[in-house]
Computed example of a mutant assay.
Amino acid sequence: MSKKEFAEVIYESNQGIATITLNRPAKINSLTYQMHADLRSALDLVEQDPAIRVVLITGAGRGFCAGQDLADPATSLDDLSDTLEKNYNVLVRRMANLKQPIIAAVNGVAAGAGANLALGADLTLMGKKAVMTQAFVRIGLLPDAGGTWLLPRRVGLQKALGLAMTGETITGEEAERMGLIWKAIDDESLMAEAEKLAQHLANLPALALAEMKQAIRAAFTNTLDQQLDVERDAQVRLGKTKDFKEGIEAFLEKRPAKFIGE
């Protein structure tokens, strides 16, 4: 097990799982220039460590992330393109392109960009009583950090517009019912269930999960013919892996497979 504490993020790795904890609990982990820099450094560590199979993101204290810290002195409110281009857009793209699956465990509040950080994960878990809101409309903005892309793909046009335009606050249970997240978990069991899911994914064939992540994301913009080609090409690559051979042998021998990520 290893641990590194940045100024506003904690990074821990253990048994193939990298846990990234947003660590400004007094400010409900609201995002600053420093936190973005720390997140980039944490993702660097993930990319540099071949042993990491899964990434788990959560927040310290009573909430996941309250969104952008509007009082951050390093953030210009006169030109929002600066923080979007240098911070949020970089983060969203890196999460989408990371080969490892990302799990978000939403404890407490996830608001604004914090909500979309959680939704940008491949699998989002929320406490049943945790809350999420697209708070942008309250300050005269539209959802960013990928929000306008994520929302309609998760819940459809009407729900996406409703969440964005009203800024309504929904619970984890409501988010699960509308298909916005993967699962709502009893709040006291959230981290245990998130870690259990992370360990389950860490034991699966890593190359297959990486191909799934990219192929399913590509499906939103591909035609059926294009997507069939994506599936074919990915399947050819996976069919040449040691994990595919192990999976077949384990199936025929009626035993659990032992995947090595190769």
Results as ranks from 00 to 15, higher is better:
G59M: 09
E47S: 15
R53D: 04
A42G: 03
D72M: 08
E47Q: 15
L45K: 08
A26P: 03
T32V: 10
P50W: 04
T58Y: 03
G61E: 05
A37T: 08
R40D: 14
V55M: 11
S30Y: 12
T32H: 01
Y33L: 13
A60K: 13
D72W: 14
Q68K: 11
P50H: 09
R53W: 01
V54P: 02
S41H: 11
G61A: 11
L70V: 14
L70H: 12
G67R: 08
F64V: 10
N29D: 13
R40E: 14
A37P: 00
C65Q: 04
P50C: 07
H36V: 07
A51P: 01
V46C: 08
L43C: 03
I52C: 09
T32C: 01
L70I: 14
V46G: 07
L39Q: 05
D44I: 00
F64H: 03
F64I: 07
V54E: 01
D72A: 11
T58W: 04
G63P: 01
A66D: 07
P50N: 13
I28G: 02
A26I: 05
E47I: 10
K27D: 05
A51E: 13
R53N: 13
D72L: 10
A71G: 09
Q34T: 11
K27V: 00
D69F: 03
D38P: 06
L56A: 04
L45Q: 14
L43S: 02
L31T: 07
I57M: 12
L70A: 15
A51K: 15
D49V: 03
A26M: 06
V54W: 00
L70Q: 14
A42H: 04
R62I: 07
Q34C: 09
T58C: 13
S41C: 09
L31K: 00
V54I: 15
Q34A: 10
V54T: 15
A42L: 05
I57R: 02
A66I: 03
L39F: 04
G61T: 06
D44Q: 09
H36M: 06
I28Y: 10
V46I: 12
G59F: 10
H36Q: 09
L31A: 04
A37E: 15
F64C: 06
N29W: 10
P50S: 13
R53F: 01
V54D: 00
V46N: 05
V46Y: 00
D49C: 03
G67W: 06
S30D: 10
